[in-house]
Design a protein around this nucleic acid. Structure first.
Lengths: 166, 166
DNA sequence: GCCGATTATTTCAAGCTTAAATATTCAAGC
DNA sequence: GCTTGAATATTTAAGCTTGAAATAATCGGC
């Protein structure tokens, strides 16, 4: 995915005409997007491990929970992080084993359990989040705040456009 | 990583002043970037599996090799795809088992092996690549070619900026 | 020619990830 | 109350991923 060759022309299912360069421009954008993501993820993974002994998926789950003091369902976490259900089970299991998050049965529904950060988990996450924000700022420093906002807006609209169709 | 809370202020190592909103804008960009990547990757993985019985990592390796008919070293593949060395070993093993790529010793250096696509591999990849390009074009259709080019350029510069420092 | 450093690759353990299969619970509808 | 279908969560198998350690081959200085 990092590298798809660019020569081919995409045919549109709706039959509308489109310049070859358009599809190439989008493909190039996707490749750059993915390479940027991998670069940032790699950096964050490395530093999380070195400085906090944590992994990126654990950080992600804790970040999701940090925003919701009342807790989240397993399925809410997986939907929010866009990962599979079974995936979250394993990560939460390990976080529970480390005492960073807790499962509790707060509703009458015995299928579901609310996952919350423990006090220890909140403290651990706060430290990591501060460092994390400064890493990102360091790494993306070459992009002005104005450009960052513009790109965010475009990425956001693309996402909701597509979700609407699917 | 998909969700880092935004309130905290990043302190810059170099001591230069920076508006809090700047670091927040970059953090937001990173979150959007990652969510977009996951969305696109998920779509591509799903379709590759459904339509071609292939996986994304295998597609990536084949895409890298497709650009280089003379072959690549294992280390070139892993550097290009920004994944670890050991990772590529396993993926190539499976591709070799499927007859899609081949290892050969073409230089005087017996440590290294050149990896190339087989004829079968080239044919398989060509079909996947055409479909892949149209998927991306479909998914990113909401972004104009002009915007795509602008964003590509900004992402590229950020990347080389950082690589220069590190 | 020998030795230490370097380079290329593989191996391994731990953890992550998905998709599919399974189990459990809930909510209706009868 | 019982059944059925939907929703939720977990388990499983296969594959991906990393980082570190092990292996192997090469290179450079002597």
């Amino acid at each position: 995915m990092v590298s798809a060759p660019l020569p081919a022309v995409a045919a549109r299912p709706d039959g509308k005409k489109e310049k070859e360069s358009d599809s190439k421009a989008r493909l190039r954008l996707w490749i750059r997007l993915l390479r940027a993501s991998r670069l940032i993820e790699g950096m964050a993974r490395e530093r999380l491990k070195a400085q906090f002994g944590a992994t990126l998926p654990r950080f992600d789950v804790m970040a999701a929970l940090f925003r919701k003091p009342d807790g989240m369902l397993m399925s809410e976490i997986s939907r929010f992080l866009m990962v599979s259900n079974g995936n979250v089970t394993g990560i939460v299991d390990r976080l529970v084993a480390d005492g960073l998050v807790a499962r509790s049965q707060r509703s009458g529904d015995r299928r579901t359990s609310f996952i919350t950060l423990t006090r220890k988990g909140r403290a651990a996450f706060a430290a990591m989040a501060a460092a994390h924000e400064s890493w990102i700022d360091e790494l993306l420093g070459g992009i002005s705040a104005r450009d960052a906002e513009q790109m965010s807006a475009k990425l956001k609209s693309f996402r909701s456009d597509w979700e609407g169709e699917a």
